[in-house]
Design a protein around this nucleic acid. Structure first.
Length: 415
RNA sequence: AGAGAGGUGGCCGAGUGGUCGAAGGUGCUCGCCUGGAACGCGAGUGUGGGGCAACUCACCGAGGGUUCGAAUCCCUUCCUCUCUGCCA
């Protein structure tokens, strides 16, 4: 959520900055208008309440003195009518305000480049050279044409399309990757947490998936509960409605969860293979920092994920997302794209975002700055998506004879 | 899932219609005491909004209602605990 006060005072500046995000900025003007009107109406209401409170306190005094209370009572009856209608006005404005406020995306950081979509993202650097093959490298589903490793058909049988089953060494590799990544992140100072894969509405509002993106979530029938689309939701919401001690910051966490997405908007995209599934494993990084620390911690997270890829021997590149490609809650995002020889292109494998105080304001996560309570900055990033790492290994480590080598660092993890 | 009990400040806990935003304890912060500490003593210590400020409004799980006035009464709902059932 945006800072409403800031919006009232620096409307034009915020409007300009949000333009970068290619979103409906027509929401902004009503937002400002309603917030100002609300302030005015609230003042009126509070004056009425103050009168009601003050005069109500006279009753016991009157009674003690044996005075007649009829006139006072009728005065207050009348005032009460006014309070009732003023309350109604305020409530309506508040509802409208939060309805709009929760749908306005975060403001892009100044460093975010202009652009429409992923075509306009800016490559920051390449890490490792892309591997060369003395044969034509295959896509992962062709390497494993018999589906001895990834069984797509049976995934569909068990659930529906975009589900799959890992078998044999692929199942072991998945498990190895989870453990390796968590250990790697721990060595960089991230503490491990294991959280529920189901979250309530408040949590999803806190991190920004709701109310706007409910269509992409699997909802539990008859309950206000959802399967999590990312560990970012439960891990960040660990601190919802809390005021943290300054010396506890930065909090750096890592967590493995399954993630569930309806992929409602991507019909027809990546229908083949493991790239885009309704359920996938991911090891996530989540950090809670002071505003002063967040940029530095952001870099640490990017480095952590990139070094992880490097340690697996996977060529990749860092990409700074342009305004048009930036997610709803993010102020700044760097994607890591891994080289897939079979597809002959880089594909997203990690996305690291600084949401600054956007989620913190929604989720009311604050820290003590002296006597003041201030909003923290929240950051999240994948390190890494397990399924995509798995196919990256399959494609990058494939041999001419169809076998797949295992990256050295994983050897201890596969028995 | 059924039966019962309960949700109050960082924590414990009092409060059943009128200066209660809330006693008391504990924790924490600051000061005094001390060679230093403990003990003891004194002061401070919830959140959010409005106002330069004095101050003011809201919040006792959440949402409604009754009343001039609600932490206290009524309704709805969520959650927690205990027992029973079921299960890893």
């Amino acid at each position: 959520m945006l800072d409403i006060k800031e919006l009232q005072n620096n409307f034009e500046e915020i409007r300009q900055k949000l333009k970068k995000k290619k979103v409906d900025e027509t929401l902004l003007a009503p937002l400002k208008e309603i917030s100002l009107k609300l302030k005015e109406k609230k003042n009126i209401l509070e004056a009425l309440q103050a009168e009601q409170n003050a005069k109500s306190k006279l009753f016991p005094i009157y009674k003690k003195e044996g005075k007649n209370i009829d006139e006072l009572k009728s005065q207050l009856d009348e005032n009460k009518q006014k309070i009732t209608s003023a309350t109604e006005v305020v409530r309506e404005l508040e509802e409208n305000l939060s309805l709009i406020a929760l749908e306005v995306p975060n403001i892009p950081d100044d460093s975010v480049p202009e652009g429409e979509d992923e075509e306009d993202n800016v490559e920051i650097k390449k890490v490792l050279n892309i591997p060369s093959f003395d044969f034509e490298p295959k896509e992962h589903w062709d390497i494993d044409a018999k589906q001895e490793l990834i069984d797509f058909q049976r995934g569909v049988k068990l659930a529906k399309s975009r589900f799959s089953v890992l078998k044999n060494d692929a199942a072991k590799l998945e498990r190895a990757l989870v453990n390796y990544m968590l250990d790697f992140n721990a060595s960089r100072g991230f503490k491990e947490v294991s959280v529920p894969f189901i979250a309530n509405k408040e949590s999803l509002e806190g991190t920004g998936q709701l109310p706007k993106f409910g269509d992409d979530l699997f909802k539990i029938e008859g309950e206000e509960l959802y399967l999590i689309p990312t560990a970012e939701v439960p891990v960040t919401n660990l601190f919802r409605d809390e005021i943290l001690a300054t010396d506890a910051l930065p909090i750096k966490l890592t967590s493995y969860t399954a993630c569930f997405r309806k992929e409602a908007g991507s019909a027809g995209r990546d229908t083949r293979g493991m790239i885009r599934q309704h359920q996938f494993g991911k090891v996530e990084l989540v950090c809670i920092t002071t505003p002063q620390q967040s940029e530095e911690v952001f870099q640490q997270m990017v480095d952590c994920a990139s070094d992880l890829l490097t340690s697996l021997g996977l060529a990749h590149r860092m990409v700074l997302l342009c305004g048009g490609d930036l997610g709803f809650s993010a102020s700044k995002t760097i994607d890591l794209e891994v080289w897939l020889p079979g597809q002959n292109r880089y594909r997203e494998i990690s996305s690291i975002s600084n949401t600054k105080d956007f989620q913190a304001r929604r989720a009311k996560i604050r820290y003590k700055d002296g006597k003041k309570n201030r909003l923290v900055h929240t950051l999240n990033g994948s390190s890494l998506a397990i399924g995509r790492t798995l196919i990256a290994i399959m494609e990058n480590y494939q041999k001419a004879d169809g076998t797949i080598e295992i990256p050295k660092v994983l050897k201890d993890y596969i028995k």
